[in-house]
Amino acid sequence: MKEKNSKQKKGTFELKAGLARMLKGGVIMDVTNAQQAKIAEDAGAVAVMALERVPSDIRVQGGVARMSDPEMIIGIQKAVTIPVMAKCRIGHFVEAQVLEALEVDYIDESEVLTPADEEFHIDKTKFTIPFVCGARNLGEAVRRLREGAAMIRTKGEAGSGNIVEAVRHIHAVEKGIVELKEFLRKKQIGKIKAKAVEYRVSPELLIQIAKLGRLPVVNFAAGGIATPSDAALCMQLGVDGVFVGSGIFKSSNPGKRAKAIVDAVAHYNDKKKIAEASKGLGDAMAGLEIATLPTKYAERGI
């Protein structure tokens, strides 16, 4: 049996991007302990993101935000059967190595944590575990793809409870793709090549995107989603699924809100179901005006 196994290939890009495909139409929830992870799984989350402090707490408490304690991640892995993701700092490839050793299912190279490298992101092709990365626009998205990311999400503005930045980033990625499609339609290959220079990626990647009319990997919304309507808004704008960070466990009734957001994403085109899901959820997280934020996480890792 051993020798037959030699034909198996592991850690390929197809497998990395494939897991993200299986998460489509789903909600990935930030959790800080095993109990929250259970609540997320019970609500119907497709995966959980294990982290020590949700973004809104990082904002309040300040300090350097790092990868979580492995013990806490292992506790969450034991508590649930759905995929467990975890965050490492931008450019901190040793934190990523540690997360790979822990066998997390996905690594989020995240701007929510304090960046470790202001010049380089992690070379994600060197890992067998897949990575998801945030992007504010098409240029950032394709640079992360070039580095080996197998899933993209908007950066939004994590911990703000304010959807405006995620919406801005969805539009910006879309605008970039529409522009490429126009270039291709008019056979303006020179303009695509100029964009490739501007974005610092290969023209082939941009031509692929122009042909597909979308990113070649699964694209989620993240950063500021607090209500079922927020989640459905992002879905109607064209993303494949959503991450919810502080929005669930900083609300007054996390279990109920988690379930409501899962339902709103599954039925994102059904206004009656979204209305039903939105009933009696108690208080959403307070939320913050973007202009008042001293630190904008989305400006990290461009």
């Binding site: 034909k7 198996q8 290939k9 592991k10 850690g11 390929t12 197809e14 497998l15 494939g18 897991l19 892995q77 995929p83 467990v84 790979e100 066998e103 997390v104 299912d105 996905y106 067998t128 575990i129 897949p130």
Partner: peptide
């Protein structure tokens, strides 16, 4: 197991050979 045990392989089926994920 977890994602690191995910794999691709060429398999034989009664419908013929195929690549499976």
């Amino acid at each position: 197991g977890r994602q690191n045990e995910s794999f691709e392989a060429d398999i034989k089926t009664s419908l013929g050979a195929m690549h499976a994920i």
